[in-house]
Amino acid sequence: MNKWTFPTQIYAGPDSLIRLTEFNNESILIICDPFLKDSSNLTYVISLMEGKNKISTYTEVVPDPPITHVVKGIQYMEGIKPTIIIAIGGGSCIDMSKGIAYFGRKLKHMDIKSFIAIPTTSGTGSEVTSFAVLTDSETQVKYPLLDDAVLPDEALLTPLFVKTSPPNITAYSGMDVLVHALEAYVATAANNFTDALAQQAIELVFEYLPKCYKPTATDQDRMSMHEASCLAGLSFNKAGVGLVHAMAHQLGGQFHVPHGLANSMLLPYVIAFNCSHNPDVAKKYARLAAKLGFVSHNASEEDKLGSLLKAIIKLQRTLKCPMTLTDFGVDKATSEIKLNLMTDRALEDMCYRFNPYPANHDDIIGLYKNVL
């Protein structure tokens, strides 16, 4: 039996930030990426709430948030005693804020009325997922925190912060959206509901990500990618993701490859691998390719799958995504040394269990070798 709820209230549109004007007599903690600290956009957000509320800002956010940074955030929060937490940033910022809010409520028994996420990239979908990925700095292992209690209470989707997003950030985060949706589409827990969300996200990515990569991107283009990210997040939060993510987490942990880029590198190879081992996955992706208009509905399954892979690779090239670790700047000999370690950890990664085919150690080694 499937049970469906979307606990996070979603406010979407250029005017979504007006929601913040409704707070009164609250202690508000804003957790944001450090480059936003003195920005006009953050000043605008604060102006919507100041005068009626006590506002504090915390900016000690880094990529792949370490567990130690979550501890520091909680220590800072104890002195503030916030009633509202607002995370403004990309996936790392929101994940770190999830950890801070979660442990603040669970361990410190803080009275946090609402935890709000305002994503500044169209990528992770973290604003609507029950996941937070935290990193052990010593071992470079990423640990997923999975609990409905980490879900933000509200998500505000606005084009304000993504207008100035650098092209490479737009590209990598956008490819992350595509991977979320394509993996959720064939994950072991997928169903008609998650498929509908995933397919719409995929359509939006192929149409709007190339537009957002250009300096001529409009607010509507940006909002469409924001909505694609959110749709993909809602989908994979129920369906799961798969082997791409399990392997990409290791590329990020060992070589600091941005998560969306790591996903992008692996995506075509894992799709081809899953299709070659699971006929149902091949049929489903083939139907999707035809629905997306990449090929005729009368084409062979092989041609349909080929058209999907070609469309993905064309998009990667349009966005100038490095296709291998070597292209990214990692020496091949260095990456080869880590192959067995990364493979062992990929097999232990929680995302692996949702892959539609149980790849073994040798399978994953072979897949990694494609992107060295």
Rank of each mutant, 00 (worst) to 15 (best):
A290K: 07
A290V: 09
A290R: 06
K291L: 14
K291M: 10
L292Q: 07
L292N: 02
L292D: 07
F294T: 08
F294L: 09
F294D: 09
F294A: 01
V295A: 11
V295W: 05
S296I: 02
H297G: 12
H297V: 12
N298K: 15
N298A: 12
S300E: 10
E301M: 15
E301C: 13
E301Y: 14
E302A: 13
D303H: 10
D303R: 11
K304Q: 11
K304N: 06
L305W: 12
G306A: 09
S307A: 13
S307E: 04
L308R: 04
L308D: 06
K310L: 10
A311H: 11
A311W: 09
A311V: 10
A311I: 08
I312S: 01
I312N: 00
I313F: 07
I313E: 09
K314Q: 13
K314M: 10
Q316L: 03
Q316R: 14
Q316D: 08
R317D: 15
R317W: 09
R317S: 14
R317Y: 14
L319K: 08
L319C: 04
L319S: 06
L319A: 04
L319V: 02
L319M: 10
L319Y: 09
K320Y: 03
K320S: 10
C321K: 13
P322V: 08
P322K: 10
P322S: 09
M323V: 10
M323T: 09
M323G: 04
M323D: 05
M323E: 13
M323P: 00
T324Y: 07
T326D: 01
T326Y: 02
D327Q: 09
D327Y: 08
D327V: 04
D327P: 05
F328W: 09
G329V: 02
G329N: 05
V330R: 01
V330L: 04
V330A: 01
V330I: 13
V330G: 00
D331R: 05
D331Y: 01
D331A: 06
K332V: 06
K332A: 11
A333S: 04
S335T: 08
E336T: 04
I337S: 02
I337Y: 03
K338Y: 07
K338N: 11
N340K: 14
